[in-house]
Simulated assay, not measured.
Amino acid sequence: MRYMMIIHHDDEALANAPQQELWAEYAAFNQALQKAGEGFSGGERLAPAKGGTVVRTRAGKTDVLDGPYADTREQLAGYFFIDVPTIEEAVEWANRCPSSKYGAVEIRPIVEQGRR
């Protein structure tokens, strides 16, 4: 089953993390994903939430809000796609992700279009 691992960071906790160690862990994690083979794809890191823009349209009116919208310390920071047989294996990969120490990794199944 295909899953998306959605990374949520506490920007302050991440900024205070030992940077050299963090990026070395990420390099090892990305290498492990590559070795896992087909169905595992690297992810993308997003710019901090303060640089984001939220657009909402309600009753024909467009509202634009700059910066993080969610009233939470953890903000969307990036993602990975994985393909594993069980949710337990997806949890194992999320646990290996260095970001699990500085925020949360949400696992969501991918809805396969055209498959039943």
Results as ranks from 00 to 15, higher is better:
residue 2 R to S: 10
residue 5 M to E: 12
residue 6 I to L: 15
residue 6 I to M: 15
residue 8 H to W: 13
residue 9 H to P: 00
residue 15 A to C: 07
residue 15 A to S: 15
residue 16 N to G: 14
residue 17 A to W: 03
residue 19 Q to E: 10
residue 20 Q to P: 00
residue 21 E to Y: 01
residue 23 W to C: 00
residue 25 E to S: 04
residue 25 E to T: 04
residue 29 F to Y: 15
residue 30 N to T: 03
residue 32 A to F: 10
residue 32 A to H: 13
residue 35 K to H: 13
residue 37 G to L: 01
residue 39 G to M: 04
residue 39 G to C: 06
residue 39 G to R: 08
residue 39 G to Y: 07
residue 41 S to C: 14
residue 41 S to E: 09
residue 41 S to I: 15
residue 41 S to G: 13
residue 42 G to P: 12
residue 42 G to E: 08
residue 43 G to E: 08
residue 43 G to W: 10
residue 49 A to R: 02
residue 49 A to E: 05
residue 50 K to M: 10
residue 54 V to L: 08
residue 55 V to A: 12
residue 55 V to F: 15
residue 55 V to P: 03
residue 56 R to Q: 09
residue 56 R to Y: 05
residue 57 T to S: 07
residue 58 R to T: 14
residue 60 G to K: 00
residue 60 G to H: 01
residue 63 D to P: 00
residue 65 L to W: 07
residue 66 D to W: 10
residue 66 D to H: 15
residue 66 D to Y: 11
residue 68 P to Y: 02
residue 69 Y to V: 05
residue 71 D to S: 09
residue 72 T to S: 13
residue 73 R to V: 08
residue 75 Q to S: 09
residue 75 Q to F: 05
residue 78 G to Q: 04
residue 78 G to K: 04
residue 80 F to P: 03
residue 84 V to F: 06
residue 85 P to W: 11
residue 87 I to D: 14
residue 88 E to F: 09
residue 88 E to N: 14
residue 89 E to P: 03
residue 91 V to C: 09
residue 92 E to P: 02
residue 93 W to D: 10
residue 93 W to Y: 11
residue 93 W to C: 09
residue 95 N to L: 09
residue 98 P to W: 00
residue 103 G to L: 00
residue 103 G to M: 04
residue 104 A to P: 00
residue 107 I to T: 11
